[in-house]
Amino acid sequence: MGSIIRLKSLTKKYKIGGEVITALNNVNLEIAQGEFICILGTSGSGKTTLLNITAGLERPTKGSVIINGVELSKVKEKDMAVFRRKYMGFIFQSYNLIPSLTALENATLPLIFSGVGIKERNKRAKELLVELGLGNRLFNKPTQMSGGQQQRVAIARALINNPEIIFADEPTGNLDSKTTNEIMELLIKLVKEKNRTLIMVTHDLELAQYADRVVHMVDGEVKKISVREETDYA
């Protein structure tokens, strides 16, 4: 199976005042279609930076990101929207739902931008939200939902376009351990069902157990990549 994502000697430097911070230093990584990759590391180790650059939200100082054979630095910012709609779904630690929209509307938002009709949109979103256990929360606004519920809406939003890759930055960072497990089970089930690629950032060792491979980050560098033994995942 060919790699869906190729990261070649990624380096990212931030300049604050006169000081230069190296957030990423020469990161090389290949990710296969359908793989679940976990990026693990302490705070400030450059996990989010790596994720954002891989998703094309930030430009690397050096190196290149190739997704499905397309070099991201060659895609114009203007055309990134189409690219994101097709290839990428995002889940954030703080859910990032649009406060004025209901669960259903939030979940359908990517389809609105893709120009999908309202009937088709609502049908798909309902199915997904019901699958995520939110059948009775369709018309609630984010403020009327718990963190776990909000994150499930965010997962529906990330998956609704059927993107090739799902990026998740500490998706359970704000949730208790019971809810975390529920969410993780759901997410992994949905991703594996459709053979989607999942890249998840976490600093939680336990969560890393779910992943096919774990990328250990220390001070902007990949220190180690560990592969989960087949028996771990039942």
């Binding site: 203007k78 929207a81 189409v82 994101r84 995002f90 990032n96 406060p99 938002l109 990517p110 931008f113």
Partner: peptide
């Protein structure tokens, strides 16, 4: 923030 999110989830210019 909301505008940023919309861009991330596929809103074009």
């Amino acid at each position: 923030r909301e505008i940023g999110i919309m861009k991330v989830i596929g809103a074009s210019f």
